[in-house]
């Protein structure tokens, strides 16, 4: 769907990953500078912190969800993007994001599109909820 044709109520679903890997957690740690061992050190996560194992940085899920947003708005300009972290994301998870167009307004010759964002895991549990707005080229 081209952003130029969007209407309120439109939804678009994207698969972020079919099978989240521990390697991607390591890539994100290195790229972001968040080396919290909870996300990369399985021994630490299990035996020192009491988790079943390593789990994804919330910011990795937000970053992956951000790709769904930029794919949708295309060469539009992102104005705002915010999320709430609702549940943890684990290696092996399948993640899908659904964007819903909740508003379209005109502002100074630009079209501003408002989006509702939900990323869920393979069990249908919401891991991220959020909103974004972007200025679309007219």
């Amino acid at each position: 769907m081209s952003p130029r044709e969007v209407a309120v109520g439109d939804t678009v679903e994207s698969v972020l990953t079919e099978d989240l890997t521990r390697t991607q957690l390591v890539m994100y740690a290195g790229a972001s500078g968040d080396y919290n061992p909870l996300h990369t050190d399985d021994l630490y996560a299990r035996e020192a912190a009491g988790y079943p194992g390593v789990f994804a940085h919330g910011m990795l899920t937000m970053g992956m969800t951000g790709k769904a947003v930029t794919d949708f708005v295309g060469d539009g300009e992102l104005l705002r993007y915010g999320v709430r972290f609702r549940s943890q994301v684990w290696p092996g998870d399948r993640l899908t994001t659904t964007l819903t167009v909740t508003g379209i307004t005109e502002d100074d010759g630009r079209r501003i599109v408002e989006l509702d964002i939900a990323t869920v895991n393979g069990d249908g549990v919401q891991v991220i909820s959020g909103t974004a707005s972007a200025a679309l080229p007219v």
Binding site: D34, N36, H39, G50, P52, F55, G58, R86, S87, Q88
Partner: peptide
């Protein structure tokens, strides 16, 4: 808390307002 996983909303505890993910 004794088990940090409890307060971190692990295991798919769902969309409670308090849940959060470790940085």
């Amino acid at each position: 808390v004794e088990a940090p996983a409890e307060d971190a909303g692990s295991g798919g505890s769902g969309s409670n307002e308090e849940s959060a993910v470790a940085r």
